[in-house]
Design a protein around this nucleic acid. Structure first.
Length: 586
RNA sequence: GGUCUGGUAGUUCAGUUGGUUAGAAUGCCGGCCUGUCACGCCGGAGGUCGCGAGUUCGAGUCUCGUCCAGACCGCCA
């Protein structure tokens, strides 16, 4: 038997018991006459004691142990004379009588400690060592428990988890597909699913009116801190529901996860905000409402005074930053630089300091009068001591830039507290999005999203104005999930394809199987999908989803541990009847 | 595809207007130490300054290219 207890188990009540422990050597402290060894496994750390008075030879052996050696010890639990209140096992130690080195270890390239000295790259290359660290272990435990609580809740609500294929058919809409060549069907390819969207709708047709799945999805697009090429979704669909039913069901699910994993309860319903309002007041379809700082439009109050930037602007907007009138020139310059970064792209920033003595200091003093400043301040609800920041320009771009500035100010002022959670439903998304490059509409969500009944007529006249029965769950400015009520009517679906510029033949070849299924009694249905990795990251309080994925890909989509992706052999290519245009460089 | 940041000891980093033998901390190795728990003290080893060109009497430092890593934009729910 390798162990009678784990390394996190022993307590003062075990004193006197003979025990066997196995684990990794965290650290050896050699004090000359005696040697302490911290023995670690995923349950905790237990201190081992070796004493020359008891067994000089054994003590000598203990001194030669290196970091991360795997050892097994037999000994007796004893009460410590110096207790360590910082450790769960800190009241006891094991007096070792027998030591076996199960495996030695090379010196690890970084310290396997909570506060590791390892950089990102090394941690990824030696991920199995990184995963030994408590922070990573806790993240994966959280992930496991979230999945468990989720399944418990969904089961209680009558949802069935059903697996859908990973090898499926490529579809042109949405993200780029990962494709898999088929050996048996020469020249043909499977695609990995971007989501099980079509299958879950088919399950609705099949009568499985409450489906969910914790499922891997794949998108061949560039990565971000919150985007991996393969990621996990909580995919859900319900039949015989309206938008309200879906929102209520998954708000309850969200509350259950918050309560069971974070101990957070929400007394009130989650607030809801239309997409239009989100853009107007926060410049984003995923506003962080942990703090307010809404936009105020000043377009009508800023022109005609000879300040060209404002005169020519389609939109002039402001945020009021409370208590920041004392900002220095340097701080304001920093903010100006921030909004002028190419990623944000504002041309400049105008500030208005509403000083405590009631006077104004602005960057446009020579163009405007005190009365103008008073008007602006009043519109923004600014009081003495506040700072008003203004951006101007093309409407869409300026709103986005002002949204970034708002988030930056929220961060600077400490409003974006990771321990505070502000969920929000964003509703009434537009159905379609105009794409300048290809001069056509794209489905904002996907082509099966239903338009609002009252907007259907607009499909003919003004498709861009049509609102969808689509919704997102946003928490702390992170898009946690989104979904829609689907089209279940063949005629409306055809209309939708038409608006999207599909010929009937294209629609038939891409989605014919779904259209066909809809002819056999498709119930009204809708659903939602949540980004599981993002959600775990949010709960774990980490900024990158890599921290909650055991073996993630790096910035360039590579697994730096096993060096995937890699070239395949000519024989493999041959079997697939594939020929490369050019050989990879390495 | 683009913008930005970084690459120096095993690791995390510092390195001044370009100037002698490139430093610190930590880790590692050796010695001492019987109550440590980030043990302590003494000593030691450890460097192709990512790679390649260029400028220069002289490059870790400046220029160009390239590779790698990270953040973001485009892209992507």
């Amino acid at each position: 038997m390798y162990r009678t207890h784990t390394c996190g188990k022993l307590r003062i009540t075990d004193v006197g018991s003979p025990v066997t422990l196995s684990g990794w050597v965290q650290r050896v402290r050699n004090l000359g006459g005696m040697t302490f060894v911290d023995l670690r496994d995923r349950y905790g750390i237990t201190q081992l004691v070796f004493n020359t008075e008891n067994d000089a030879g054994l003590c000598q052996e203990a001194r030669s142990l290196g970091r991360e050696y795997v050892i097994q010890v037999k000994g007796t639990v004893a009460e410590r004379s110096n207790k360590n209140s910082k450790m769960a096992t800190g009241d006891v130690e094991v007096l070792v009588q027998n030591l076996v080195v199960l495996n030695s270890s090379e010196l690890p390239p970084f310290t396997v400690e909570d506060d590791t000295d390892g950089g990102e790259e090394l941690r990824m290359k030696y991920r199995y060592l990184d995963l030994r660290r408590n922070p990573m272990r806790k993240n994966l435990e959280l992930r496991h428990k979230m999945a468990l609580e989720l399944r418990k809740f969904m089961d209680m609500q009558g949802f069935m988890e059903i697996e859908t294929p990973v090898l499926m058919k490529s579809t042109p809409e949405g993200a780029r597909d990962f494709v898999v060549p088929s050996r048996m069907n020469t020249g043909q390819f499977y695609a990995l699913p971007q989501s099980p969207q079509l299958f879950k709708q088919l399950l609705m047709v099949a009568g499985y009116d409450r489906y969910f799945q914790i499922v891997k999805c794949f998108r061949d697009e560039d990565l971000r801190a919150d985007r991996q090429p393969e990621f996990t979704q909580i995919d859900c669909e319900m039949a015989f529901v309206e938008q309200e039913d879906v929102l209520v069901t998954f708000e309850n699910m969200t509350k259950h996860l918050f309560k069971s994993l974070k101990g957070v309860t929400f007394e009130e319903d989650f607030p809801r905000m239309s997409y239009a309002d989100a853009i107007t007041y926060y410049g984003s379809d995923k506003p962080d409402i942990r703090f307010d700082m809404r936009f105020v439009e000043l377009t009508g109050n800023t022109s005609g005074k000879g300040f060209q930037v404002f005169d020519e602007a389609e939109y002039v907007g402001a945020i009021c930053v409370e208590g920041c009138a004392g900002y220095s020139r340097k701080e304001l310059d920093q903010l100006t630089d921030f909004v002028k970064r190419p990623q944000i792209g504002a041309k400049g920033m105008v500030y208005l300091k509403y000083n405590l003595d009631g006077t104004f200091k602005t960057s446009v003093d020579k163009f405007f009068e005190k009365e103008d400043f008073e008007t602006w301040a009043k519109a923004c609800g600014a009081r003495p001591g506040d700072l008003v920041l203004m951006l101007a320009g093309a409407k869409t771009k300026t709103l986005t830039a002002l949204g970034e500035l708002r988030l930056e100010m929220g961060t600077r002022l400490g409003f974006r507290d990771k321990t505070k959670f502000s969920p929000l439903w964003v509703v009434d998304f537009p159905l379609l999005e105009w794409d300048e490059d290809s001069q056509r509409f794209y489905a904002m969500h996907h082509p099966f999203t239903s338009p609002k009944l009252e907007d259907v007529a607009l499909l003919e006249t003004n498709p861009g104005e049509v609102r969808a029965n689509a919704y997102d769950l946003v928490i702390n400015g992170v898009e946690i999930g989104g979904g829609s009520i689907r089209i279940h009517n063949d005629e409306l679906q055809q209309k939708m394809f038409e608006v999207l510029g599909f010929t009937p033949e294209e629609a038939e070849s891409q989605f014919g199987f779904l259209m066909n299924a809809f002819k056999y009694g498709a119930p009204p249905h809708g659903g939602v999908a949540f980004g599981f990795d993002r959600w775990v990251a949010l709960f774990a309080g980490v900024d990158s989803i890599r921290e909650v994925i055991a073996f993630p890909k790096n910035n360039s989509g590579r697994d730096v541990m096993n060096d995937a992706p890699a070239a395949i052999s000519p024989a493999q290519l041959d079997e697939l009847s594939l020929e490369l245009k050019k050989r990879p460089g390495k």
